[in-house]
Nucleic acid binder design. Structure first.
Length: 630
RNA sequence: CGGGGCGUAGCGCAGUCCGGUAGCGCACCUGCUUUGGGAGCAGGGGGUCGCCGGUUCGAAUCCGGCCGCCCCGACCA
């Protein structure tokens, strides 16, 4: 075979100092170049791909529906494609990146003693009926019936499956603590997907499950995960902020979310720069001093057309924080066997604050909460826009009253009569709350619960979360162990998740510029984008040889070997794909003394003699890796 | 599910109001020229105009129904 490599190499040797490390001709019988990665038994040591053969084209323009920069870039660079709403395919570039992310996760799970396993995506309904979630979770769970008429589901997460196996595999305290984990597909039929990989219905998740004898053991593994997640953020080049969070459908008490702070995020976060307090707005606490005062006599006042709290306060010469407002929901409550009942849930908060839906849901005990319609409100006897619990049947709704409202006398509330309000409403005297709690949501500038300094509200994307579940799932699956005294006890469980696609999307969001992606070395699908320029065969023969040399040296190379494309196209494509290093070899660079080596992150070109390329590239890669070390 | 928008070639779009042989740019294929920041010329391939039904001599275009996708909201480990 006289093609490509062999000729290239001899040509090359004749002109310049040797760089080759025993490169060989890599051609199929038909003379076409083939994928170097599969050319050799030691495939993992030789990773090279030709752009001419890369599955996944670049696009000059992003699809019209794209709203988020990183989403557009991942599409344009040929990393991902959409198959249906919220359902994406990972093309080879994204898949390589995800495998690199997975490797970081694997190393961090190994470090804290994890054992990797793989659990099914399809589960029998009984598993989830035992935990109760078959009934508690609504349409978000994808269900189907198999040919034997058995109820099945697509797993949204794997607590049940883990607890199921733990019940038979773990018998003794001698087997604890333990940690099992996997990377597995989850399916959640969310009402609405959004923003490319930011919120999807099918996704890859690293989920780990800690198993312990008691709460103290659980805390240890929880803390280990907390630290592992911080390292994962550092190693993948994504700044993460840990915030306290709601346990949601997972159950359990203590939970944190690891957030990437960005305006495109869908979660609201409260951060205190003074003391470091950080929490999801759903659970963020803040100081709210009840205004003291002697209860005064209830008074009905005319407030024509007072549509907003601001209007109302102005009409009555009051301030907004002397008012209260009602927010109406309809809660879905579970009963035995899974039937649901609906009740109106009426939240009462200070007039100028917002109700926190999650807290209302938790305080009311509802499984789900939705906004109430005007008709549903009217059915309770209250008048939308002028509502209050005063004079209303206490059983007409569940009255979830904010602590501040319950403690502050003489508030202004509706009179349940159009254009009329009541002054001097006092909780406990004029109406009876069903439940009192922290209903008001944190806001920009609210005094931090811990130190009193103003909170800052930002938005974030949830990359990962950690939960101290306790014994909820192990008890429902009867996963118990025998302690030293021969007593049977429930196993304590924690669960810990990280969304891989979401992580990749956020890394792309964080590391990009107008020209494309700028992926960290730990995540990029290849280390180097090699580009050959120029029209003469000699130059291209040299570039071919450099390609072989680099991959022989263990460097992962994406080689733009297209000769029919203009320089501009190849350079633009390379910028778009965002590999950490770019090597350009053309007649011009050869005249200057070799190859041009450039970091995608800063765009500085350096001329490197060909014989020094491997060393220089490895030096750059090492420096990049050091920067991502923990 | 409520509100809004969009479905015409792989991507970006025009044509739809006012019915009359389906177009443009990029991408793709062939040939020649071209190789340092999205090349030029010439030729070519590719579209049941989202689907179903209706009106009409004739429908991308008008009417009805449905489906899909995006955005906002609700919702969500």
């Amino acid at each position: 075979m006289q093609l490509g490599g062999v000729r290239a190499r001899s040509r090359f040797r004749g002109t310049r100092a040797p760089v080759s490390v025993g490169s060989r001709s890599r051609r199929r019988r038909d003379g076409q170049p083939r994928n170097e990665e599969i050319d050799d038994v030691k495939s993992t040591e030789r990773i090279g791909q030709r752009v001419s053969n890369l599955f996944g084209a670049t696009l000059r323009e992003a699809p019209a529906e794209v709203e988020i920069e990183s989403h557009g870039l991942l599409l344009r660079a040929g990393y991902i494609r959409q198959l249906a709403s919220g359902i994406f395919s990972y093309l080879p570039l994204a898949w390589r990146s995800l495998r690199k992310i997975e490797q970081v996760l694997r190393e961090e799970m190994d470090r804290i003693g994890g054992q990797e396993l793989s659990l099914p995506v399809v589960h029998p309904a009984e598993l989830w009926q035992a935990s109760g979630r078959w009934y508690d979770i609504d349409a978000t769970m994808a269900r189907f019936v198999d040919r034997r008429d058995r109820d099945m589901l697509l797993a949204m997460t794997h607590e049940e499956a883990v607890a199921f196996h733990v019940a038979t595999e773990v018998q003794s305290y001698r087997q604890l603590p333990a940690l099992v984990w996997q990377v597995q597909t989850k399916f959640r039929d969310e009402l609405r997907s959004r923003g490319g990989l930011i919120r999807v219905r099918e996704f890859l998740m690293k989920d780990s499950y800690s198993l312990d004898r008691d709460a103290a053991g659980l805390k240890v593994q929880y803390q280990a995960h907390y630290e592992a997640y911080e390292r994962i953020g550092t190693r993948t080049g994504l700044p993460l902020t840990a915030v306290q969070s709601d346990a949601g459908m997972m159950g359990g008490k203590i939970a944190h979310e690891f957030m990437y702070v960005t305006p495109i995020g869908e979660d609201n976060l409260a951060l205190c720069d003074a003391c470091g307090y950080s929490a999801n707005r759903e659970v963020a606490e803040f100081r709210q001093k009840p205004a003291p005062g002697e209860p005064a006599e209830l008074e009905r006042v005319h407030t024509p057309g007072a549509a907003t709290i601001a209007d109302l306060a102005e009409q009555l010469g009051a301030t907004a924080d002397q008012t209260a407002k009602m927010v109406f929901y309809v809660g879905s409550f579970g009963g035995e066997g899974g039937e649901r009942t609906e009740r109106v849930v009426a939240a009462i908060v200070r007039g100028d604050l917002e109700a926190n839906v999650i807290q209302v849901q938790n305080l009311s005990g509802a499984l789900e909460l939705r906004s109430a319609s005007e008709e549903e409100i009217a059915a309770t006897g209250m008048v939308p826009g002028f509502a209050s619990p005063v004079g209303i049947d206490p059983d007409a709704a569940i009255f979830v009253v904010d602590k501040w409202v319950a403690k502050t006398p003489n508030l202004i509330l509706g009179a349940n009569e159009v254009d009329y309000h009541l002054r001097n409403v006092c909780s406990g005297r004029d109406y009876e709350p069903t439940v009192v709690g922290k209903v008001a949501a944190a806001y920009e500038g609210a005094p931090c619960a811990r130190c009193g300094e103003p909170l800052r509200m930002v938005r974030g994307v949830e990359i990962g979360n950690i939960f101290q579940l306790g014994t909820r799932y192990t008890e429902s699956m009867e996963a118990r162990y025998t302690d030293e005294g021969g007593k049977g006890k429930p196993i304590w469980m924690g669960s810990y998740g990280i969304g891989l696609g979401r992580l990749l999307a956020c890394i792309a969001e964080e590391h990009r510029d107008d020209d494309g992606l700028k992926l960290p070395v730990s995540v990029a699908p290849y280390h180097v984008g090699l580009i050959g320029l120029g029209k003469d065969d000699e130059t291209h023969a040299i570039v071919e040889d450099v390609f072989q040399t680099l991959i022989e040296a263990g460097i992962e190379v994406l080689f733009d070997d297209r000769r029919e494309q203009s320089p501009g196209v190849k350079l633009k494509d390379a910028d778009l794909r965002g590999l950490p290093l770019r090597v350009v070899i053309g007649e011009r660079s050869l005249k200057s003394g070799g190859a041009e080596l450039r970091r995608r992150s800063d765009g500085e070109d350096r001329i490197i003699a060909l014989e020094n390329l491997v060393v220089e590239i490895n030096g750059e890669l090492d420096a990049m890796r050091v920067a991502l070390e923990v």
